[in-house]
Amino acid sequence: MRHWVFAALTLAALLWVFPLVWALSSSFKPRSDLFSYPPRLLPTEPTVENYHNLFAGYSFLQWFLVSTVIALIATAVTVLVCSLAGFGFAKYSFRGKDALFNTMFSSLAIPFAVIIVPLFIMLAKTGLTQPLFALIVPWVAPAFGIFMMRQFCEQAVPDEILDAARIDGASEFTTFWRVVLPLLRPALGALAVWSFLNTYNNFLWPLIIVSDPAQYTLPLGLQSIFGAEGRQYDIVLAGSILAAVPSIVVFVALRKQLIEGLSAGAVKN
């Protein structure tokens, strides 16, 4: 039975990796070889012309910088806000706590497309549509992140540790910063990976907010290349490979915390 499971997981891994390998290989192919028949995985005459044209003809580095900076800022703020909110819901009692949490949790059932117009109108009327602000603020307190941190706080943060810190004279914020956060490290890593990928790869919201090509994020920039005359598939493939680098780096750097955070809910104390 284990051999069948291993074989199935190996096949699934290969199916997941194959498109990435194909895109990487195709990014070194001239455009004439992209649709050759029969299709070939490896380029017959490898070339870096696609990457040269990407940097020479488009503002790729600027798009890359905008996306990376926005994703890093949004991730840092999201991790802090969600951990504070999750800790509050898990360890404090206050009037309306259950109703507030249920309302927040229920928002997970609402598709983003439903609220995108009201959200844009609200930001426009308050004069907060500046891209650097508008691309970050709507994502700093996601319901999923708050729910995740609340569940982890309930499992990983004993009340006895909090009581001991308070007896020693630590303030509530000091207790959170020095006692609670180290215990939440696996969940923080998992939430950071989720938040970074969600913000970095977001396309619909930047499409609504950003109108200046100089402020495009990577998804918008690559879409503009793809939508150009002649369908620049070769250049888009090169850009897509480079765009995937930050996501891979973040995942590799936080993979241990991600696995621990995602598997924590399956362990019963």
Rank of each mutant, 00 (worst) to 15 (best):
N102M: 14
S93C: 07
R95T: 06
F64Q: 00
A170F: 13
V66M: 04
L258M: 13
P38V: 09
G227Q: 05
T103M: 14
L254G: 10
S26P: 02
W63Q: 01
R150V: 08
L123P: 02
W205K: 02
A253E: 02
I110Q: 01
F147N: 00
L204W: 14
F64A: 00
G189V: 05
R255F: 10
G57A: 08
T44P: 04
V77F: 09
E160F: 09
A124W: 12
L218Q: 00
V252N: 02
S83W: 04
V81S: 06
G221L: 11
S107V: 05
E45C: 07
V69R: 06
T68P: 00
Y92F: 15
Q223W: 11
L123A: 07
F64G: 00
A141C: 11
V245H: 03
A90N: 00
S93Q: 14
F89S: 01
P46V: 09
K29E: 01
P186Q: 03
L184V: 09
V245I: 15
G265H: 04
L254M: 13
P19M: 11
P186S: 05
T174N: 09
T44I: 11
A90E: 00
M1I: 12
Y37Q: 12
V81E: 01
A164G: 07
T217L: 09
F112E: 03
L14F: 15
A71K: 03
V157R: 01
T175W: 10
A7L: 14
L65S: 10
A228D: 11
V5E: 10
